[in-house]
Simulated assay, not measured.
Amino acid sequence: MEESKMENGKEINNENIENNESIETEENLENKESDNEDNKENELNKKIEELENQNADLKDKYMRAMAEMENIRKRAAKEKIDTIKRANKDLLLSLLNFMDNFERAIKAGENNSDIQNSEYYKGIELIHKQFIDFIHDNGVEEIECLGGEFDPNLHEALTMVEIPDCEHEKIVEVYAKGYKLNDELLRTAKVIVGKPKAKE
């Protein structure tokens, strides 16, 4: 009887051990599953973080590329405008030489009434007026200088002459007019400058 009990006791103990092992195994499995889930979650979080970083990097590169493209577009537009301005400047500068010759022709006939009444002279005056209108329409303005003070930034002195009762240097004659193009100097005026008479 006692052996049977002992055996039964052993059996009971064995069953308890098996039950305990079974419980531990289940707990281990649950822990492993939980660890696996945690690992998967960590991996997913890392992957999400990597993708977010890649996305931010790509977005930054895209924004930089767009800004660079905009800068290139603006630079190209400015270069185009500058090229047109330079071409216009060169053309207008060449035309001013024709203007000078027309003005000399007009000046030559100022004191002769027969020349002034001729159709030839009137034609020259008409062409001269058309030239003036054309250059004004293209942003060219004459630099007014006769009687004004000499400014080396705007005027080129061909010669200087002494003038009585002159207090400071001033322009007494304009040989070739000066012009500005859109407030920028296009051509300096060629002038004769009067200066105070030297003290004896």
Results as ranks from 00 to 15, higher is better:
15 E>F: 10
5 K>V: 13
16 N>V: 10
200 E>V: 05
177 K>D: 05
191 V>H: 00
88 N>L: 13
2 E>S: 08
86 R>E: 15
38 D>P: 03
142 E>R: 15
112 N>Q: 07
166 C>Q: 03
135 I>S: 00
101 N>C: 03
185 L>S: 07
71 N>Y: 05
126 L>H: 12
170 K>S: 13
140 V>Y: 00
158 L>D: 08
141 E>Y: 03
8 N>V: 12
56 A>C: 04
142 E>V: 12
100 D>I: 01
95 L>C: 05
111 N>I: 01
62 Y>G: 06
137 D>A: 13
73 R>Q: 10
162 E>K: 01
169 E>T: 00
109 G>R: 04
57 D>E: 12
106 I>H: 04
82 D>A: 07
200 E>N: 12
89 K>R: 13
17 I>Y: 15
163 I>F: 01
122 K>C: 05
67 A>P: 00
7 E>I: 14
95 L>W: 07
176 A>E: 14
155 H>A: 05
18 E>C: 05
129 K>H: 08
8 N>W: 03
24 E>N: 08
193 V>Y: 01
147 G>Q: 07
23 I>V: 13
42 N>D: 15
25 T>Y: 06
120 Y>L: 12
156 E>Q: 12
139 G>F: 06
11 E>Q: 13
96 L>W: 01
37 E>W: 03
155 H>R: 05
9 G>V: 06
184 E>V: 07
91 L>S: 10
33 E>Y: 05
16 N>R: 13
169 E>C: 04
153 N>Y: 08
5 K>W: 08
94 S>H: 10
29 L>I: 10
90 D>W: 02
104 R>F: 05
68 E>N: 11
41 E>Q: 12
32 K>P: 00
101 N>G: 04
123 G>M: 08
63 M>I: 13
140 V>D: 01
93 L>W: 04
127 I>H: 01
175 Y>G: 00
17 I>R: 12
119 E>S: 15
87 A>Y: 07
48 I>R: 14
163 I>G: 01
55 N>C: 08
49 E>F: 01
83 T>N: 13
50 E>R: 08
6 M>Y: 05
99 M>P: 00
137 D>T: 06
99 M>V: 09
76 A>C: 11
68 E>R: 09
160 M>A: 06
50 E>L: 08
63 M>S: 12
112 N>P: 00
189 A>V: 01
83 T>L: 15
198 A>H: 11
187 R>Y: 07
131 F>N: 04
77 A>Q: 13
88 N>D: 15
120 Y>I: 14
103 E>W: 00
30 E>L: 12
143 I>E: 03
98 F>S: 13
184 E>P: 06
158 L>I: 14
111 N>T: 03
164 P>T: 08
113 S>K: 10
156 E>T: 09
